[in-house]
Simulated scan of single mutants.
Amino acid sequence: MDHNNISSYQPLIAASDDTRVAFYKRTYAHVALAVLLFIVVESIFLRIEPLVEFALSMTQGWRWLLILGGFMLATNYAENIAHKSHDKTKQYLALLLYVIAEAFIFLPMIWIAIAYSGGSMNIFDNSIINQAAVMTLALFTGLSAIVLFTKKDFSFLRNILMVGFFIALGLIVAGMIFGFNLGLAFSAGMVVLAAGSILYQTSNLVHKYSTDQHVGASLGLFASLMLLFWYLLSIFSRD
């Protein structure tokens, strides 16, 4: 019997303090690598003019719902692999798929932020993007620290978040049907939902995963981080 294999599947909550700390370090290192990869892929996408034009064209009307639907399918597939599989190769492929999907979804938003500020196509040389990124990092760090230091279980947020996201999706569809702008209040509400998602995902990090699932844990945290960044960037991009 392979005792190393058994230990690799040990629930994190039952592991030693040293094992948990090592797991947290690996998880957040993967989140950082996912962010770095996102920046690289986004920078490449921004320089492919036909791709930018296609992404911008897909934000009009019902075509945006097709993009969101495809993104949700990719997200669900990636999360299922990353969270349920113990195959490291599949977990990394799932994370890679998700990062690329995020980069494409963000393409219109990043392009608009750059155009609004009149800056270059260098993501790092844009005040709006930098402001949203700093605020996102600060909130993500603070919310993660709350869970990691208190060890509080925020699993009760799951149903609240599901209801909130369904309401948000309904409002997005209604906005497309009736042609109204969701406005600043909607973006602020989504920031709150994203903050709740970070608390929930970090709680899962502490209470739900086994010691070999740091890639899956990083995908959940990365998804919440990018959701927060999206709506903060939306707020900062407004007149």
Rank of each mutant, 00 (worst) to 15 (best):
T59D: 11
N130M: 13
Q10F: 12
F229I: 14
A217L: 05
T27M: 09
I48M: 12
K88M: 15
T141E: 02
E49W: 14
A185N: 03
L193R: 12
F156A: 04
S237M: 08
T136P: 11
F23V: 12
L184I: 15
F186A: 05
S117M: 08
L225S: 04
W62M: 09
F45I: 10
D87Y: 07
Y9M: 10
K151D: 03
V163L: 14
I110M: 07
L184A: 13
Y77K: 12
V147Y: 02
L51N: 03
L219S: 08
G196W: 10
V52P: 00
I48A: 03
D87N: 15
A94E: 06
I177G: 00
F165I: 14
V40L: 13
L225M: 08
R63L: 14
M121Y: 15
K25A: 07
L68R: 09
A78S: 15
L73V: 15
E102M: 13
F222Q: 07
Y231P: 09
F54V: 15
D239G: 09
E102I: 14
Y98Q: 06
T27G: 09
I114R: 09
A74H: 09
L221G: 08
Y209E: 01
I172E: 01
I6Q: 01
A74R: 06
A103F: 00
A34W: 07
S85D: 00
N181I: 11
S234C: 07
V206W: 05
K208R: 12
A101W: 06
K88N: 02
Y209H: 01
L139Y: 12
I48L: 03
F186L: 06
Q91L: 09
D2F: 13
A29M: 09
A223G: 05
Q91W: 08
E53S: 10
F106A: 05
N76S: 05
S8L: 11
S117H: 13
Y28Q: 03
S224M: 06
F222R: 05
G69H: 05
L219H: 08
T75I: 02
N130P: 01
L12F: 09
N4S: 14
N181Y: 02
L193Y: 04
A15Q: 06
D153T: 14
A94R: 10
S117R: 12
W64H: 04
V215N: 05
I44V: 15
N159L: 02
A113W: 06
A194W: 07
M72H: 00
I114L: 12
Q201P: 11
S237V: 00
D17Q: 15
V31C: 02
L232K: 04
E53C: 13
D17R: 11
M190T: 13
G189N: 03
F104M: 08
W230S: 04
L221H: 08
L143G: 01
L73C: 00
A194C: 07
F166M: 06
N76Q: 03
I105A: 11
L193E: 03
L219M: 07
F140Q: 07
S210K: 11
H86V: 13
I128T: 14
S144V: 14
V215K: 03
K88L: 08
S144F: 00
F180Q: 04
A34V: 14
A168Y: 08
Y9T: 15
S85I: 12
F178M: 05
I129W: 13
W111C: 08
